[in-house]
Amino acid sequence: MKIAFTSKGKDWDAPIDPRFGRTEYFFIYDEASGGSRIVDNTDVTYEAHGAGPKTAQRLFGEKAEILITGNGPGGNAASVLEKAGMRIYTGAGEMSVKEAYEAYKKGDLKQF
């Protein structure tokens, strides 16, 4: 599985960004290969409106299958992610990326 985390930093210890649309980065972990990469989303901070769908489109391009975040995307972004068939898990708003991954593995996160 390819898992995307909304994150405020670039490594496993970075805190999860509880926001979806205006998240600073995506930390993307590929379970199959064990590799990870960072997608910079800071430019979306400069959008006055419609940050959610713009970020959703970017994430769609990354071909992740699972999204782990804090509060969950708003309606517009959710409809894009749904169309892309993404599974979304929420409730990781106060964790680090690593803790969020462990919580997901244990089944502690809520499916959106």
Binding site: G50, Q57, V80, K83
Partner: peptide
């Protein structure tokens, strides 16, 4: 206004 996006071969309007 980011009100239009494209997902695969589909255009979505918000």
């Amino acid at each position: 206004f980011n009100a239009i996006t494209q997902i695969m071969d589909e255009i979505m309007v918000f």
